[in-house]
């Protein structure tokens, strides 16, 4: 059942897309090395029998109440928009998006 996995270039390319981070090719080796040293550190943990254990959850002494449904207007709106990197009137502006565009799998140019 236990699968020891390596992070390789293929997965790294995918992960770069998922996390919207670019990396020059000459730095691939360094990141792969670091990632794999973390994974190797974790291999032993995989072998621990945790079949009867459920994933970690907090013990709560007294749960806080959920929020009552009432609307409150935020006073910082104008100042926030003023600070926004690219603003267009009442909007935030971004480069052109075509319906169905997929940010994470966009090919590197």
């Amino acid at each position: 059942m236990i699968k020891k996995m390596e992070m390789d270039e293929v997965r790294l390319r995918e992960v770069l897309g998922f996390s919207c981070i670019g990396l020059p090719e000459e730095e691939y080796a360094e990141v792969l090395d670091r990632a794999n040293s973390v994974l190797r550190m974790c291999d032993e943990m995989q072998e621990l029998d945790s079949s009867n254990v459920s994933p970690f959850e907090w013990d709560v002494k007294k749960a806080p109440a959920r929020r009552e449904d009432s609307a409150v207007a935020w006073k910082g709106r104008d100042r926030f928009l003023d600070q926004a990197p690219v603003r267009e009137g009442d909007f935030f502006r971004v480069p052109r998006i075509i319906a169905g565009d997929d940010v994470e799998t966009e090919e590197e140019e």
Binding site: D69, A71, D90
Partner: peptide, 20 residues
């Protein structure tokens, strides 16, 4: 609802000025 799912912003957004 009167407010959003995870914050107290008004849910009355149809026709509202953008980003209010």
């Amino acid at each position: 609802t009167k407010s959003k799912l995870f914050c107290s912003c008004s849910s009355d957004y149809i026709g509202a000025t953008p980003n209010t």
